[in-house]
Amino acid sequence: MKTKLLVITALFFIGSFVTTAQNDTRFGAMLAYGTEIENLGIGVNAEFPVMENLNISPGFTYFFPKDEYGINVNWWEINGNANYYFTDREDFGFYGLAGLNYTHVSIDYDDSPIGGSMEASDGRFGLNLGAGANFDIGSSITPFAEAKYVIIDGSQLVIAAGIKFNI
């Protein structure tokens, strides 16, 4: 139940920014790969300009459940980053990012023949450091790529690519 509440809260938070959008605001979707969970995920993010060359970028990533040796792992994260654009030309924008991360991991083990089972979950706060690039293709859709390192207990590198819609 806590997971659903956090997901709904994150989507509401992102949606409230979209309704107050200004020029150069973007909302996007992405595919991601996490090196610690070693699995693909999907996510949403947004960018809201706050000053010249500086955007606030909230995001949510849900990694697909992973089942190894009877242990089911669920992993998701909420991010709040600041993107600083070093280069923001018409066709290409390169930015560094830094921000906060909340990662939630839950595991579930069910050994039906023996009758034993186990469930556990944990959430941790961490820091994001990384870089990304937007590629302007001359439409309201902007492809992007991003790599960030999440500094947390169980740190991981997250590599993502997707599209942002200019609003």
Rank of each mutant, 00 (worst) to 15 (best):
I163C: 01
Y149H: 07
Q22L: 09
G154T: 02
I141Y: 12
G34P: 03
I163L: 15
Q156S: 09
A120P: 05
E119Y: 15
P49C: 04
N79M: 14
Y33K: 07
A82F: 11
G123F: 06
N81F: 05
L54S: 05
S112D: 13
F144L: 04
D153R: 06
Y149K: 02
R124F: 11
M30R: 15
R26P: 04
P113F: 05
G41I: 10
K2P: 08
K164W: 00
N53R: 12
I114H: 13
F94I: 09
A131Y: 02
K148C: 01
F144R: 03
V18A: 15
S16I: 14
G123A: 08
F92C: 03
E52P: 01
D153Y: 00
A10H: 00
G28V: 05
I107G: 11
T20R: 10
N39V: 07
V18E: 12
A160T: 06
I8P: 01
F48Q: 09
I152V: 11
F144P: 02
N74H: 11
A32M: 08
L100C: 05
R26D: 06
T25F: 13
A160I: 02
P65L: 01
T87I: 15
D24V: 07
M51S: 15
H104G: 03
S112W: 12
N45I: 04
P113E: 08
K2F: 13
F125V: 12
G28H: 05
S121A: 15
T61M: 02
Y84K: 04
Y109L: 14
D136Q: 14
I8Y: 09
T25K: 08
N53Q: 07
G96P: 03
R89Q: 10
E52Q: 12
E38H: 08
S106M: 03
P58H: 07
L129D: 04
R26G: 09
D153I: 00
I56D: 00
F17T: 08
F63M: 08
S139V: 06
S117T: 13
D110T: 14
G34S: 13
Y69N: 07
G59M: 00
M118Q: 15
D88S: 14
Y149N: 01
D91N: 11
G130L: 01
A131M: 11
I141F: 13
T20V: 10
S16N: 15
F92Q: 02
S106P: 03
A82K: 03
N134C: 07
I107S: 08
M51G: 05
E146D: 13
M1R: 13
G80T: 10
